[in-house]
Structures are given as C-alpha cells and as structure tokens.
Nucleic acid binder design. Structure first.
Length: 433
RNA sequence: GUGAUCAUCGUCUAACGGUUAAGACAGCGGUUUGUGGUACCGCUAAUUCGGGUUCGAUUCCCGGUGGUCACCCCA
C-alpha cells in the first residue's frame, strides 16, 4: 500500500504551532482594534446555498471559482468565497428588528477555487468590517479610520502605506451625464480605467477611443489627470460625489490621518459599490501592491426583496497582512508562555506532581508536568524553550517533606516554599511580573 | 484556465551521467543516577511521483503533482 502524503491540500495551509502563534496574533489584533470602535462580532456557516452567489455575480463565477457541490439531498452547496453575501442575507433576515446603524464584524475563513500563488491561496481568513443603516459620510470616514488604525496597531508607520480614495458617484456623473455614454460603454470604460496602470498610455488611449466619442475621450482623459479634488473642472465641481469626498477628507484630516490621496483612477472591481471607495496600498518601492479595500454598497440587500439598507465596509485578508508585515519586518517574535513547569525526578514522584499541578491549575496557573525520563538538564532546557517562567523539581525528598524549590528561570533565583502555599505564591507573582 | 520557472534528509545548503549522495541546524541518545540550555561523541533522516534515453539517471528528455512568477481574475 502506498503511503499517504503528508502535504496539505493544494492551496491551503497547515498551521503548526509556530505559524499558529503568528496567525493568532494577526487575528487577535483584528478583534482588538475593531472592538475598540464598538463593532460586534457575528459569524455564520461556511456552507451556503449556491444561489446566494449566483444572484450576485453570475453563474460563471460560481461554477469556476468556487467550491460548489451537490449534497445528498440534491442541494447545490458553495463554500463561501467571501462574507458579504452572507452578511447581506443575515441583515435582510433581521431587517425589521435590528437597531441601526449596526456595526458588525467577522473573521471568516473563505474558500476560492483558484490557481494558488504567493499571497493568494484557496483558503484564507478575511476580516469583514461593515456598518449598515447609516448613509452618513462619517460612516465612510469611520471605516477608513478603522483600516488605518489596524495597520498602525500592527506597527506600520503611516508612510509605509497609502490610502487611495475615490467616489463612484463622480465617475457615474462623468460617464452618464457629461459624456452621455450608454450602459455598455460605461461598463467598458469603467473596466478599462480599472486596468489603466497595467497597460501603456498608448494602449489605454486607443482602447478608450474605441469605446466612446472624441468629446468623451477628452473629458475622461482630463478627469484622470486630476491630482487633487479641488482641481476638478467646472462640470464636475458641483457633482454630489465631489462634495462627499471633500467631507470625508475633512473628517480624516481632523482625525490626523494624512497618508491618503484622491485617486480618480481607483475603481475597485466590484460592481456593487455605489459611493465612496478606498484601497490601501503598500507604499514600498518594490511592491506597490494593493493590500485591501472597501467602500459603500447601498443596494446589496435589495436582492432579498426587502427595503434597502445602506452599507459601507471593507475586507482584509490574513495572508496579505502577513506578507506586508514580513516585508517591513513587523511580525513580532511571539513566545509561547507557561507559568510553571514541574519536572519529575523519578517515576514514584509523578502522581504527587500531577496532583500538585492540578491544584495549581484550579487556581488559574498554567502548569505543565514534564514526566519524561530525560536528563534533568534537558528538561530544564526544554522548559526554557517553552517559555516557562518558573520551574519546580519533584523527587522523593519533596514528596516526603512537602517543601519545594521554585526556580525563576530567567532571573535564576530560587525560593523554598511549602506546597500548601504555592497557590498564594503564584497569585502574587503573576500580578507583579 | 494559459504561459514561464523550480523541486535533494524535518529545515537550510553541497555534489555528480558511474563505488556508500556530503555538511550544518533541529530531533533523539550517551559522556554525567537531584538542577541551566554549553562541550565532546554517536544515532535518526533525502534525490517529489511515473515513464523514456543510456551499460548505468538524483543528473538528460517527456508527463503528473506541488511551489513560485506573469496573464486571467481578484468578491
């Protein structure tokens, strides 16, 4: 019989303890920062009815880029490729009873059937932060502030990343009302602008000319050259989207966030965005890559047949954050931690040690009993490697006398104490060190 | 999905169309039978899989698998 492979399934990761500590750090930081803004956690199953994604994005996506299968009852099931449709479903389901605005977050694992690459795997964890039921632009500003705060909390400096901001409404005003494009042409131009940085100037202009007339081409080219919001030409200055952005920028300024720019070329791929959109970029010279982003999507809940609920939010994947932190050497060296390791010196002392350890654990002290038959020196070494703060050896002397020697491993000090008093000893110590 | 590129002990590296595939780290054991990781010695452990060329393939060729890069897509 052929041996089974020890490799994990294609495109997913095993989290050995060393990686799990990092993963926990990444996710714990997300929880901490987002809760600090008053957001409440929700979650759902990773299984969803495949129709949920068909409704939103067309069947091609569902069939080719998701894990979709038929269950024993003949239902089409999809492993969630993202959280937003699930969230919209949950919001719609409780539409009448939720108090708005609702500030919700989640860190689901999501699955995409794609060819894996670095930073892009088939399973990933994605922080989702969303606010429902507020059409205020302060909601958009708050969302961007959370995104900013997360990276700062991870240890990033503002100059390490750049927040690009745009408003879909400006583009819609330009393409629909000023250039008078039909729906197809508008869609084509949008996709083209999204790809602008990937193709040459020449190529871009050629494709643009094939999509719309000379007047529109000139308008669009002029618009895309704009560097600052107040440089927008007369036609657009009065547009609703411009005023909205000015207000969001004012709020960001008042908070002290300076590493943002207005970027007229920023589209974000998603069709469901309706207003302010933003995307955070690594500002390092080598990889100017997109880290994550989000924006306003006011009509997504409509597909559940209920009253519209305004919404704004963003998503951020664990993998992208980790790669970003690695390039700036910001991944902390996290040690596992143990309050105490008890080393047994002979087999007859193990029961005594086990009993002692259990009493300490009942007092909330993290205690490991090393009952292996290794040399004592090796046991002390591995206690150190495991991040233990204190060490106690138990042999026949200790069992007979009830007195133990507590070693503080890093300070190399020893304290002799009765086993009865150990609970108090650690309770006092854990408060101080 | 398309194209490119890579694949050697658990990890990082070395070597070669030909005798037993080398080293370091890690792990385990010993020198040391109740107290600090050291030092010294030893042990464990690999050519991704399948096919082809060849007297002989880990090496060359083809294919699979997996990683990486670009495209596609990026929710």
């Amino acid at each position: 019989m052929q041996a089974l492979s020890t490799e994990s399934y294609k495109g997913v990761r095993d989290f050995y303890p060393d990686q799990m500590r990092i993963q926990n750090y990444l996710l714990d930081t997300m929880h901490r920062v987002v809760r600090r803004f008053g957001y409440m956690q929700y979650d759902a199953s990773l299984l969803e009815d495949a129709d949920l994604y068909r409704a939103k994005s067309g069947s091609e996506l569902v069939n080719e880029q998701t894990y979709t299968f038929t269950d024993r009852g003949g239902r089409e099931v999809t492993l969630r490729p993202e959280m937003t449709p699930t969230l919209a479903r949950m919001i719609a389901g409780q539409r009448k009873t939720l108090s708005m605005p609702a500030r919700w977050y989640s860190i689901p694992n999501c699955f995409r059937y794609e060819k894996p690459q670095r930073g892009r795997l088939r399973e990933f964890w994605q922080l989702n932060v969303d606010m429902f039921g507020s059409e205020s632009l302060y909601a958009d500003a708050e969302t961007i502030t959370i995104a900013y705060s997360l990276l700062i909390e991870y240890g990033a400096k503002p100059e390490m990343f750049l927040i690009k901001i745009n408003n879909r409404k400006i583009m819609r005003e330009l393409l629909q009302n000023i250039c008078n494009l039909d729906v197809d042409a508008e869609y084509g131009v949008s996709k083209l602008i999204d790809r602008k940085h990937k193709i040459s100037e020449q190529e871009f202009n050629n494709q643009l000319k094939s999509l719309c007339n000379d007047f529109a081409v000139e308008q669009i080219q002029n618009f895309l050259k704009v560097q600052k919001i107040d440089e927008l030409n007369e036609n657009l200055r009065g547009a609703l989207g411009v005023d909205e952005l000015i207000q969001v920028f004012k709020t960001l300024d008042s908070i002290g966030i300076t590493n943002y720019i207005f970027d007229p070329t920023l589209m974000r791929g998603l069709d469901y965005y309706t207003g302010v959109v933003f995307e955070v970029f690594d500002s390092g010279n080598e990889n100017n890559r997109s880290l994550f982003g989000g924006g306003r999507y006011d009509y997504l809940v409509d597909m559940f047949g209920c009253e519209s609920v305004t919404a704004t939010g963003f998503g951020m994947s664990d993998i992208v954050v980790q790669k970003f932190l690695e390039t700036y050497d910001l991944v902390p060296d996290i040690q596992s931690s143990l309050d105490l390791v008890i080393c047994t010196l002979d087999v007859d002392s193990i029961d005594f040690a086990m009993n002692m350890a259990q009493n300490l654990r009942n007092n909330g002290i993290t205690t490991l009993v090393d009952f292996s038959e290794k040399k004592l020196g090796a046991k002390i070494g591995s206690a150190n490697d495991n991040g233990a703060r204190y060490l106690i050896c138990i042999g026949s002397n200790e069992v007979a006398s009830g007195m133990v020697t507590v070693k503080h491993l890093s300070m190399r000090t020893e304290t002799e104490i009765s086993t009865d008093l150990l609970g108090d000893f650690f309770e006092k110590r854990s408060l101080s060190t």
